[in-house]
Nucleic acid binder design. Structure first.
Lengths: 121, 121
DNA sequence: TCGATATCTGAGCACCTGCTCAGATATCCA
DNA sequence: TGGATATCTGAGCAGGTGCTCAGATATCGA
C-alpha cells in the first residue's frame, strides 16, 4: 500500500482520458488480442465470409468461430447479414483493418531488429 | 468435431499469414488490451516517465505498475534506462503510439454512431 | 412434414491474467 | 555503514478467457 498517497491524479500534463475511454480502448485491443480472432479479422479484411468458410480456413470448429464472432459483434468490429442458411460476416469499421495492418508492421519491425527471425512475413 | 473435415486450409485466396505471425500480432494487441497498460502507454506517449510517477498518475501501486512494465518490456513496447534510484520508461516503437491513436479513433467513431455517449472524448 | 445443413447458445473446465502481499535488490546520502 | 527511497520479483488468489460438448434454433429442399 502507501502508493505515494498524495497528489491525486492528472493535472494539466496533457490530454489524459477518462477511465471509460481507457476501458473502451483496451476492450478494442482485447478484441484482437487472440490468435483466432486475429485470423478471423484478417480473413474478413479480404471480404465477407460465412461461419463455415471461416471455420474451414482456420481449422477451428464452427462453434468456436461462432462464439468468437459473437464477441466481435458485441464489440462492434463486425456486422453480419443472413442469406438463407448462411450468415455472412464482414468488418464493420475501416479502423479495424488499419489496426491489424499497423500491428503487423510493428511485429515486422520488432522482429527485424534481430531479436527473432521473421521468415513468416 | 467434424468441422467440415475436408479442405485443409488457406489456398491462394490472399496473403494468409503463418500461425507464428498471427500469434505475434495477437500478442501485440494483448499488450494494450488492459486498461492499466493502455493508460501507461498513453502517458508514455507524452514522454518518458519513472515508475512512481506513473503509479501516482494512475492511482495504482508501484508494484502493479512494475509488473505491467515488465510485460510491456518483454513484448518490446517500452524500453527503460536507469538514473540513480529512478527507472525511466519510454515507448520503444512509433507504431505503438499509432496503434493507440487508431484505437482511440475507432472507439470515438463507434460511440458516435449513437450506441453510447462519448462525452469523455 | 421430415431430414440435412448452418449457425447459435449455455454449461463446464483447463488455463491465463492482474492484482496484492511480502520480501529482495539497488541506489543515494549522511 | 545504515536508513530512506525506488524498483523488482515470486507466490497466491479471484476473476476472466477460449474451447468443447450437447443440444437448440433456423432455413432449405424433397
Amino acid at each position: 500500500m502507501a502508493a505515494v498517497a498524495g497528489q491525486v491524479t492528472n493535472k494539466g500534463e496533457g490530454a489524459v482520458l477518462s477511465d471509460r475511454a481507457y476501458n473502451a480502448i483496451a476492450e478494442t485491443f482485447r478484441a484482437l488480442a487472440d490468435p483466432t480472432r486475429a485470423r478471423i479479422v484478417h480473413l474478413l479484411s479480404f471480404g465477407e465470409s460465412s461461419v463455415n468458410h471461416l471455420a474451414e480456413n482456420l481449422t477451428v470448429t464452427p462453434s468456436a468461430v461462432s462464439h468468437q464472432l459473437r464477441m466481435l459483434r458485441q464489440m462492434g468490429l463486425v456486422r453480419f447479414r443472413r442469406e438463407g442458411q448462411l450468415a455472412f460476416y464482414a468488418l464493420d469499421d475501416p479502423h479495424v483493418a488499419i489496426l491489424f495492418q499497423e500491428a503487423r508492421e510493428h511485429v515486422s519491425d520488432y522482429l527485424q531488429e534481430g531479436r527473432k527471425s521473421r521468415e513468416w512475413l
